[in-house]
């Protein structure tokens, strides 16, 4: 399954990069006479309400989805690793303060807080990334904190400390690397989560704004044409489901490979 996941993700990344060359039409070119026409030989996924090629827009949407998820996961993981390692390594009041902040942020269902933040900051791609990153780091911080608490007592860390290594060096060279396998698994699964969250916000009209094609925005517009043009709903949704499934398969496979203990449990 992990291989299937890796293949899906690879194809999606290729499609996102090569989209403009693969698509037979420009994503913004309008053929108003053919608006809402269903899939055919020329327009494989049909046309939207402005007569634009849905296949070209789905390909371009892959760029938005992958870009948002890479940035959100990258920023979240970086902040989470920093906060989690500081909390776990230093303990005491710093740990107490960071842990309480984590508790408060975890008290919100994640997407709800993202909706709230984007509602006040205004709908845009940047604000979606900002909102999802502000929430996303919490999961990584909690994971890393737990790992660091264990790692700081390990012999090689004690040895480094005894040899006079600075705190920063111990964290960067010895402790943080031990957390990376778990962070990698969480980041892979988090990619799927970020794609879903971005699409959900865009679907609600709070994310990427037209004319930029985002899968969630396309689904939102498709909702008004369920009766006469169901292809507007089917294809962008299928793209989301396949890509998220790919990341989930890959994440599950990585977890099995990096943590054999879970293999027998799940």
């Amino acid at each position: 399954m992990a291989r299937v996941g890796a293949a899906v993700v690879f194809v999606a990344v290729l499609a996102a990069i090569l989209g403009p060359w693969l698509a037979p039409f420009e994503p913004s070119t309008q053929e108003l006479a053919l608006r809402l026409e269903g899939p055919n030989g020329a327009h494989w996924f049909g046309l939207d309400e402005l007569g634009r090629d849905v296949f070209a827009r789905v390909l371009l949407g892959a760029r938005i989805s992958l870009l948002v998820s890479f940035v959100v996961v990258g920023v979240s993981a970086t902040i989470g690793i920093a906060m989690g390692s500081v909390a776990g390594y230093f303990g005491g009041r710093i740990d107490e303060a960071i842990s309480r902040l984590i508790d408060i942020l975890l008290a919100f269902p994640g997407l709800l807080l993202a909706i709230a933040l984007v509602a006040v900051l205004g709908p845009s791609l940047t604000n979606v990334v900002l909102a999802l990153s502000l929430i996303g780091w919490v999961g990584y911080a909690r994971l890393v904190r737990g790992q660091v608490l264990r790692a700081r007592e390990l012999e090689f860390v004690q040895a480094a400390r005894a040899l006079g290594a600075t705190t920063s060096r111990i964290l960067r060279r010895h402790i943080i690397p031990t957390t990376l396998p778990a962070v990698t698994v969480q980041a892979t699964l988090g990619m799927g989560g970020a794609i879903l969250a971005e699409a959900a916000l865009s679907f609600l009209g709070l994310g990427v704004q037209p004319p930029t094609p985002s899968w969630g925005t396309m689904l939102n517009y498709g909702r008004g044409h369920l009766l006469d043009a169901p292809h507007l709903t089917i294809f962008p949704g299928l793209a989301i489901a396949i890509l998220v499934l790919g990341f989930n398969f890959l994440g599950d496979g990585l977890r099995d490979a990096l943590d054999p203990a879970t293999r027998s449990r799940t």
């Binding site: 399954m1 799927g192 879903l196 699409a199 959900a200 679907f203 969630g216 689904l219 498709g222 909702r223 369920l226 009766l227 169901p230 709903t233 089917i234 962008p236 949704g237 299928l238 989301i240 489901a241 998220v244 499934l245 989930n248 398969f249 599950d252």
Partner: peptide
């Protein structure tokens, strides 16, 4: 297991309209 993982991956904002297309429309 595959069905369960698929269920997690399908967003409800897609499943909802799909169900509406099939069972309502």
């Amino acid at each position: 297991t595959t069905l369960a993982l698929t269920g997690i991956s399908i967003p409800n904002f897609w499943l909802g309209p799909l169900l509406a297309i099939v069972f309502a429309v």
